[in-house]
Design a protein around this nucleic acid. Sequence first.
DNA 1: AATAAGGTTTAGCTTTGCCTAAAATAAAAG
DNA 2: CTTTTATTTTAGGCAAAGCTAAACCTTATT
Lengths: 218, 218
Amino acid sequence: MKTHTESEENYIKALYHLGGGRPVSNGDLAQRIGAKGSSVTQAVRRLGQKDLVNVVPYKGVQLTPQGIRLAKSILRKHRLWETFLVDKLGFGWEEVHPLAEQLEHIQSEELVDRLFQFLGSPKHDPHGDPIPERDGQMPPVLGQPIGAFTAGTEIRIVRVEDAGSEFFDQLDTMNINLGNTYEIRAISAFDSSVELGSSAGTFWLSQNMCANIYAVQS
Amino acid sequence: MKTHTESEENYIKALYHLGGGRPVSNGDLAQRIGAKGSSVTQAVRRLGQKDLVNVVPYKGVQLTPQGIRLAKSILRKHRLWETFLVDKLGFGWEEVHPLAEQLEHIQSEELVDRLFQFLGSPKHDPHGDPIPERDGQMPPVLGQPIGAFTAGTEIRIVRVEDAGSEFFDQLDTMNINLGNTYEIRAISAFDSSVELGSSAGTFWLSQNMCANIYAVQS
DNA sequence: AATAAGGTTTAGCTTTGCCTAAAATAAAAG
DNA sequence: CTTTTATTTTAGGCAAAGCTAAACCTTATT
């Protein structure tokens, strides 16, 4: 696998995030990258010449199989580094994203393999997102939104969406972490907020919170 | 402290390596960086505008106090990452340099501090080189070349020079590691090679090997 | 079907960072 | 003290990546 610039890798990552294998519009990509449309046009042309994307002018850009492979390898690195930062260095989950964004560009297969081992061959990162395997396979995406369960169910938190630092702060102050278990006490018919109970007591979660917290029955 | 490009940081690092605080010639710098003289002229001009170096055309370039501070902070990161790669991920010392060269550009004070703690606040890296402190202080440079001791002395290996991968390979095959202790059995008057002894037996080290291995009396 | 609106691309400019070839300067040799 | 040699700097190019403004497609509206 050849070597790519950070900018190229960022475009590939954005493309994967926005479309997976499907076409993405210039505008959406520009927004995601934080650049102007004209810059994006140029950038995707470069990527096209490297066979990482297919470009249809005025229509959209689409990752090639090669591009998808690259995207996954970057995502793998990103999530492994996040795991390292949280599990080993004790960072909070809201802090790790920008750091992982730098670390994901480090080029070394060997390093990734060793890091993976060092972390205990994790399948999911600290947010519960699946870490792509070496060969590109994806572990399952875990859980369903809390609101999808029925009252009385015992649940375990397995994943949280990246919904901005305020969301993470809120999780911290409410002391909600991956692995925590609760009983669903009630679901409001009025605003879909949810009452959770544990040995420590009970509390209500707003609909907006619930939508970004995923759990499994336990 | 502002943010710098990787190229800038590489120049600063090279300048520090070659001259510390003293002036360095365009040519030496070019050689070290692996670029042409004309590129160097441009680059140092840019650094000059950021007050990281003082440039006297046709004479030489010299780090400013600011530049020295930056150089040390990069070196600190480099050596901490090398320590991480060897101590935690199990890399061999000959493999870590190019990786640390990438990792040293990661920008985050917090990350460096946490890494430092995680590694047990090391004073020296896996080669025995001093790791600059947070405030720029330098721990002592350890040891003297093996040939400087007299026969009969008990020594402990504390540092090895970065003398290329063949040198490291040789160390590996001879099973020589930092912390190993030996008795100096003899020093050849003919070629300055040295006979070392341990519980495992005795062996001879060439003058070239000795020159790159540093030890203290123990 | 004609046109207005919105999104996309082209054209042309900027900076970083490297290159080659030519000019300028410093240092060494006569 | 002049000349040769070696080093350094200027001049002019090129590629990556971004920008603005203008031109160009698509699509949606009349």
